[in-house]
């Protein structure tokens, strides 16, 4: 099959493949797909067979006159067109919508304590990046979500502006972020690793480059990470330039910069990518970003700031130190 082959080539962690599930929910959906594919192949095959049989008869000499309808053919229509679909559709409908919905949604409040999500994360969609908060801690990050592995996590999603859609196909189905409402989705990962996600509702110029990663870590590592993220900035010296140019939009906790127009940069140095997976978090890429964000990501909300080369490299150096 082409699909699995492509998967192997792409390698784990840099795919967002519906058919490479890493959770019970996503597995349920993927196996449903394969079942439906087989059913569909049978359905299409049947129709193709009838048409193929007609093709075989294409040169049969004709009887003069026009043929009327006949009962046998009507019977075929009723069985194949009415009876069989009713059975097939009912089966699909019951299976998919009663059993599978249970597997892909969060347990209700009345569920057994062991099933209830151990952790809640808030994700807010912005044009064109993701704000991530861990309620109960001071940790705020962007575009890179960390969760403990093999733990059900409740994600509460909302939006700051237009509709976005939060989607990590290898972990679960998607959920829209709609103004005026908070939606919930279950996130669960079977195995440690990095899972790619992407905004799935058209949200404007950079909808294409509004990606994010979910990192599933063993619990201790996750705890350590969270503690680091909750702490204020590692370094405050050298922040003056930042405060004067960037504080109108960004927050660095511990420095007098607190604005949430753009991502929280308190620990930006610890992220692997910048600008919602548009560029890697390397010195060169960061410099390019600071020089001309509109070239890197045209239409993003971060303006060109007319910094000198020296200022750019000083800022880059400072940001990189915020680990």
């Amino acid at each position: 099959m082409l699909v699995p082959a492509a998967l192997v080539l792409a390698g784990c962690g840099s795919s967002q493949d519906v058919l490479a599930p890493h959770s019970r929910s996503a597995r349920g959906i993927a196996s449903l797909w394969w079942d439906m594919l087989i059913g569909s192949a049978l359905g299409l095959g049947l129709v193709a067979l009838i048409l193929g049989a007609a093709w075989v008869r294409r040169n049969e000499p004709g009887v003069p006159g026009v043929r009327d309808g006949d009962r046998a053919a009507l019977g075929v229509v009723l069985v194949l067109g009415l009876a069989v679909p009713i059975v097939v559709l009912s089966a699909l409908f019951l299976f998919a919508n009663i059993f599978l919905i249970r597997d892909t949604t969060l347990p209700t409040a009345s569920a057994a304590a062991s099933d209830r999500p151990a952790l809640t994360i808030r994700v807010v969609g912005h044009r064109f990046w993701w704000e991530v908060r861990y309620p109960g801690t001071a940790a705020v990050t962007a575009n890179e979500i960390h969760i403990p592995v093999r733990t059900p996590v409740q994600v509460l999603v909302a939006t700051q502006d237009v509709i976005h859609s939060f989607w990590v196909p290898e972990l679960n189905r998607k959920i829209d972020m709609i103004p005026g409402q908070v939606n919930r989705v279950l996130l669960y990962a079977d195995a440690p690793g990095r899972y790619r996600g992407q905004c799935a509702e058209f949200c404007g110029l950079q909808h294409a480059q509004m990606g994010f990663y979910v990192f599933a870590d063993p619990l201790p590592r996750f705890r350590a990470w969270l503690a680091r993220q909750a702490a204020p900035a590692a370094r405050t010296s050298g922040s003056a330039l930042f405060v004067s140019h960037c504080a109108s939009c960004h927050t660095i906790r511990g420095v007098s910069a607190r604005s949430d127009v753009g991502p929280d940069l308190t620990h930006v140095g610890s992220r692997t990518t910048l600008a919602a997976l548009t560029i890697p978090n390397t010195h060169a890429a960061l410099v390019q970003w600071l020089r001309d964000p509109q070239r890197v990501k045209p239409g993003s909300a971060m303006p060109v700031l007319d910094l000198t080369d020296a200022e750019v490299s000083r800022l880059a150096g400072y940001l990189e130190s915020l680990r």
Binding site: L89, L92, F95, A96, N97, K174
Partner: peptide
Amino acid sequence: IVGFILFFVAGGLTGIMFIAIPFDQQMTDT
């Protein structure tokens, strides 16, 4: 018309798949 029937069945069958809500929630907007 034969082409139409084949395409209609193929496209209709993927339409049916969306009746499975979780599958649709996975595939919508892709």
